[in-house]
């Protein structure tokens, strides 16, 4: 576990760098206040879940959404102002159908493996390490979740610098590893 300790110290260094740069560039304008966006997301969820439209329930929903927004203001959006939200949302939604298609293809592969009579000779599990070029936290999390959702690969460990350890079950799922998915996520979250 030596490399894990090294990674931890690296992460701490990077966090301190980040907080310095954050405090340097505090006064920003433009965009919508993030708390308003959070409030509307929570309130639409309330309407779907409650399903009643009379005055009493709507007032209750507004009150509770305001309280939750006050408590967890910086949870959904770390910055106080959200900019370019609509474009990011559209790009993310256009990423989802490709991901679903990829999940479907890979699921068929694992289905074939698990029904194969000589399965023990086909599989060859190994742990693969690689360095990703993604930088933002949100895109790293999305990349790790996408890797886990495409069968044949499970993310074992991610550091904040983008070191990935991936458990891959056979040769075919190992060879496509960072690959096209990383480029698509980088495009969807506006990196590069």
């Amino acid at each position: 576990m030596d490399d894990r300790e090294i990674r931890n110290t690296m992460r701490q260094q990077r966090e301190s760098d980040e907080s310095d740069s954050l405090s340097a560039s505090l006064p920003e304008r433009g965009g919508v206040p993030a708390s308003i966006v959070t409030f509307f997301i929570l309130f639409s969820l309330w309407i779907v879940l409650s399903g009643r439209f009379d005055l009493f329930h709507l007032t209750l929903g507004v009150l509770s959404c305001v309280i939750v927004t006050l408590f967890s203001r910086d949870l959904l959006f770390p910055e106080p102002r959200a900019r370019g939200l609509l474009g990011a949302w559209i790009r993310f939604v256009s990423y989802v159908p490709w991901l679903l298609y990829q999940i479907f293809l890979a699921n068929l592969h694992v289905l074939y493996l698990s029904f194969h009579p000589r399965m023990m000779e086909l599989i060859d599990p190994q742990i693969v390490r690689f360095q990703s070029k993604l930088r933002k936290d949100l895109s790293l999390v999305t990349f790790a979740n996408s890797i886990t959702l495409t069968p044949g690969t499970i993310t074992v460990y991610v550091s904040l610098d983008g070191d990935f350890s991936v458990h891959a079950i056979d040769e075919k799922s190992r060879e496509g590893l960072p690959g096209e998915m990383e480029d698509r996520i980088a495009r969807a979250f506006g990196e590069q």
């Binding site: 999940i103 699921n107 694992v110 289905l111 493996l113 698990s114 029904f115 399965m119 023990m120 599989i123 599990p125 886990t148 959702l149 495409t150 069968p151 044949g152 499970i154 458990h167 079950i169």
Partner: peptide, 24 residues
């Protein structure tokens, strides 16, 4: 496929592949 895979794969890292994802 998920249930059969959980029973047949050799160790628990590889059992996670069918368990988590074929079920999803």
């Amino acid at each position: 496929g998920g249930a059969v895979g959980i029973l047949r794969f050799p160790d628990f890292y590889s059992r996670l592949h069918p368990a988590g994802k074929l079920d999803t």
